[in-house]
């Protein structure tokens, strides 16, 4: 039988577990449960009406839709960026590597303003799309671009160490067995990277769902068209509709939790298959 407490050379099991539990409760669980407590003040019918109103529904669609699309695009291009950073040597590589972290460090409002300036109909990039009838800023496309911007480092930074550690021998073995480059990539490299890509996807998605600062500038915030959930929550707060705000927050919390949980399950399944 496995004992709850394994003998170990390092002492401190009791105290570290205690600190961990109380810290997590204080910092994470307490505020989140406050959310549920304040939402409990309204009746279920009222709650349901708030969280399923048409304006909120369309905001869910935009928030989840744009976040998913952004996370997918980030996984794809993030993998390419990581590949180049890990596998090739070129001048300016270190600078490029550092640049990947900029979306982490930049205040999100700065990013939002910069992106809006670029993609607005009169902006540097937006003006070339305007004649084609493509509006980027103030539409879901703009939202997605902002979310791609802030999500990229999550994918790169989770895949990078895995790719660095990946032994070249796997590729060499595949090639000596007669596989083409494409077959080697699809059947040997990609499966090795999948767990890390999934973690990167989950983190980019989670970040995108909660993103506020960089999006509100470029979104234009037209109800039903380019309004995201975090904005609706802020709007409700500004109108002193605290229970309305917390109701929507509870829905977002549950949805995010379920999604992250599902991704984690998938990931541990794909990991268990080989590391058993």
């Amino acid at each position: 039988m496995r004992k709850f407490r394994e003998p170990s050379v390092l002492p401190g099991f009791g105290i570290t577990l205690g600190i961990t539990l109380s810290y997590l409760s204080l910092i994470v669980l307490l505020p989140l449960s406050g959310l549920f407590v304040s939402t409990a003040g309204v009746s279920f019918a009222e709650f349901w009406a708030t969280v399923t109103s048409p304006r909120v529904m369309s905001a869910y669609r935009i928030s989840f839709g744009a976040s998913f699309i952004a996370a997918f695009i980030n996984v794809f291009f993030g993998l390419i960026v990581t590949w180049v950073l890990v596998r090739y040597k070129f001048p300016g590589k270190r600078i490029m590597d550092a640049m990947v972290d900029l979306p982490f460090a930049l205040p999100t409002a700065v990013a939002g303003i910069a992106l809006t300036a670029l993609y607005a109909p009169q902006g540097w990039v937006g003006r070339y799309f305007e004649p084609l009838g493509i509006k980027i800023a103030f539409t879901p496309i703009g939202i997605t671009i902002a979310l791609i911007f802030i999500g990229l480092p999550f994918v790169v930074r989770t895949v990078q160490p895995v790719l660095e550690d990946m032994n070249r021998e796997y590729e060499e073995a595949a090639v000596s067995l007669g596989a083409t480059r494409w077959q080697t990539f699809c059947r040997v490299i990609l499966p090795e990277l999948t767990p890390a890509l999934m973690t990167g996807f989950a983190m980019a998605l989670a970040r995108a769902l909660g993103e506020y600062g960089s999006v509100i500038f470029i979104a234009g915030n037209m109800p039903g068209v380019s309004e995201i959930i975090p904005l609706i929550i802020i709007t409700k707060l500004e109108q002193y509709d605290y229970t309305g705000a917390t109701s929507i927050a509870v829905v977002m919390l549950l949805a995010s939790f379920l999604m992250l949980f599902a991704i984690n399950l998938l990931q541990s399944w794909s990991r268990r298959r080989r590391d058993e």
Partner: peptide, 11 residues
């Protein structure tokens, strides 16, 4: 080609 550390595909 056979490698020292086998290089079997883990998945």
């Amino acid at each position: 080609f056979v490698f020292q550390h086998y290089a079997l595909f883990k998945h």
